[in-house]
C-alpha cells in the first residue's frame, strides 16, 4: 500500500521539527569541558615503540609527579616478592641500572622493600608527637626514628608518610639521600652487604663519590676534603 501523496513530506517535516528540539550532538570543548572527576588525568597506559617493545625506561618521573601516588614503579620479581622502587630524581640513574638488573630477571637486593617488618609503633608515635607531625622537620623525625629503632623500617616510613602528609617518595628520597640512614638493621647481612665495603668514616658512601672526592683532593693539592 503506497502512501497518499504529500504524506512523506509531512513525515519529513515532523522529523526535522523533532530534531529541532532534540539535544544537540556538538561537543563544545574549550567552553564546556567534559564532566569528569576533578583529578581525572585520562587513562594511564604504557606505550610501545614500532618494534613492539615497551618504551618505558623506568625513569620514575611519572611516579614522582603523580599527585595521588597512584603510580608505583615496581612489580613482582622472580621469587614472587613485591618491590616498590621509586625515589628522588637524583637517584634516577642508579635506579635505571637497578631496573635493568630487574628486567634481566635476577633479584635486586633492596632490603628496604622486601617486606614490612612489623614494628612497635609506640616510640614512633612519641617521636611524631614531639615533632608536631611537621613534614618540614622530616630530617629530625627520621634521625629520631633511626635512633629509636636502629634503622628505618618500611612500616615506620609508611606511618611517617601517613601522619605528616609527606609523599612516601619524598620520605624515601630524603632517607636514601643522606648517608647516615639505613634501611636495614646494622647486623643484617643484606644491609651490611651494601655498607660492608668500608669500615670507618666512609661507611655508606657511594663508590662514585669516593672516586670524586679522591680526584678533588688531588686537584686541591693534598688537602683532604671529607677524607679522614
Amino acid at each position: 500500500m503506497t502512501k497518499p501523496p504529500g504524506l512523506g513530506i509531512v513525515e519529513g517535516l515532523a522529523l526535522t521539527l523533532r530534531r529541532f528540539f532534540a539535544p544537540k550532538a556538538t561537543i563544545r570543548y574549550p567552553e564546556v569541558p567534559a564532566d569528569v572527576p576533578h583529578r581525572f588525568r585520562g587513562r594511564l597506559q604504557l606505550l610501545y615503540d614500532e618494534y613492539g617493545t615497551l618504551k618505558c625506561e623506568t625513569c620514575f618521573q611519572c611516579a614522582q609527579a603523580c599527585p595521588v601516588e597512584c603510580i608505583d614503579m615496581g612489580g613482582f620479581d622472580t621469587r614472587g616478592r613485591y618491590h616498590v622502587h621509586w625515589g628522588p630524581p637524583e637517584t634516577y640513574a642508579e635506579r635505571r641500572e637497578e631496573s635493568a638488573l630487574r628486567r634481566s630477571g635476577r633479584t635486586v637486593p633492596d632490603p628496604a622493600y622486601e617486606h614490612w617488618t612489623p614494628i612497635d609503633p609506640a616510640p614512633l608515635e612519641a617521636i611524631l608527637e614531639a615533632h608536631e607531625y611537621d613534614p618540614a622537620r622530616l630530617l629530625e623525625i627520621l634521625e629520631a626514628t633511626q635512633a629509636a629503632y636502629g634503622y628505618l623500617p618500611v612500616a615506620a616510613l609508611r606511618r611517617i608518610s601517613q601522619a605528616t602528609g609527606a609523599w612516601y617518595a619524598m620520605i624515601y628520597g630524603t632517607a636514601s639521600y643522606y648517608r647516615q640512614f639505613r634501611f636495614a638493621p646494622p647486623g643484617d647481612s643484606a644491609g651490611d652487604a651494601a655498607d660492608a665495603d668500608s669500615s670507618g668514616g666512609a661507611a655508606a658512601r657511594r663508590p662514585s663519590e669516593d672516586a670524586y672526592l679522591a680526584a678533588l683532593a688531588t686537584a686541591l693539592g693534598g688537602r683532604g676534603v671529607g677524607q679522614p
Binding site: T16, R19, A22, K24, A25, T26
Partner: peptide, 8 residues
Amino acid sequence: IALMNLRI
C-alpha cells in the same frame, strides 16, 4: 538548519 541537524 543547524539545530535541525543536531548542531549548535
